[in-house]
Nucleic acid binder design. Structure first.
Ligand SMILES: [Zn+2]
Ligand SMILES: [Zn+2]
Ligand SMILES: [Zn+2]
Ligand SMILES: [Zn+2]
Lengths: 144, 144
DNA sequence: AGAGAAATTGCATATAATAGCACTTGATGA
DNA sequence: TCATCAAGTGCTATTATATGCAATTTCTCT
């Protein structure tokens, strides 16, 4: 299934409207396969919808986040980064010193979710975490 | 040790200057023992330093966060909430449906930190997390 | 106590993100 | 196909946070 079709069916299934604006923004994000900021998405989606407004981009992303289609993370740059999640879940380790970003799979956070459910009955949505700290290299005194 | 003295010695030990502005902001936060927003802290600290500016409050909090004296968390309200950490570490579970906030001790996140260190050599700073999800009550169909 | 360097502040301004509101559009079903 | 109506959009205004810079203040050293 292509980006557009998946976006359209998912929105409709959730009782939301599949507008050209949303389709343009979300399929741009899904298609890129990487983190993108709201303004990057605006620039990209404007190629299809020239009148598109940044507020529509934000509202689209907020709605898609509710549906857990996209994840967001503050990676330490000024702007929030968004990413298409679909079924997959992953997280990031960010070094406070050298800025290096490492991607980690969901395993570690998944076991946290299990522990929280067993102890608090809380069903945690650990979709896309940014975890700050010091990387292996910088601990050794390296500059990363 | 009172709020002010602890703030002063910690700042000096870290090579930072203990200005009246910082002392007022940080000891207000420490003294309150709860989450406070930047504007609440401005209002409180202005009682001592009437000329205090909101930008100074933000810069003070950013510096203290670097020193890991204070934690910040986005709890789903519009504003970032700050809290004095000192030596203690805790986290919060926030229900996306009813808004209930539960406080959890550091245990769960501490074992995540251990796993990340063993597997990636990454020393994670899991100071003060806000974890969103659905609480026990709301899962049962309750309104929380 | 006083000089000097460096950090910090106030002020003005910029940027990121959100919200209100009137108008438009997509989905639904006759 | 068309009427209906809630959801979504553009536009504007607002809020929260960050930054540049000149003036001030703290700390250190003498
Ligand atoms: Zn990611
Ligand atoms: Zn590093
Ligand atoms: Zn807290
Ligand atoms: Zn709940």
């Amino acid at each position: 299934m292509g980006c557009e079709e998946e976006v359209v069916t998912t929105l409709r299934k959730a009782g939301q409207k599949a507008t050209p604006q949303r389709i343009a923004v979300l399929s741009a994000l899904r298609h890129s396969g990487r983190h993108m900021t709201a303004s990057e998405l605006l620039a990209e989606a404007k190629r299809q919808i020239p009148v598109l407004e940044i507020s529509t981009v934000y509202r689209t992303l907020a709605a898609a986040k509710e549906l857990r289609l996209v994840g967001e993370a503050r990676m330490g740059t000024g702007e929030v980064e968004y990413e298409w999640l679909g079924q997959n879940r992953h997280h990031h380790l960010i070094c406070r010193q050298c800025g290096q970003v490492e991607r980690i799979e969901d395993t570690y956070l998944a076991s946290l979710a299990i522990a929280l459910f067993e102890n608090y009955g809380f069903r945690a949505d650990l979709d896309h975490f940014a975890i700050f700290g010091i990387c292996r290299n910088c601990q050794k005194g390296g500059r990363g």
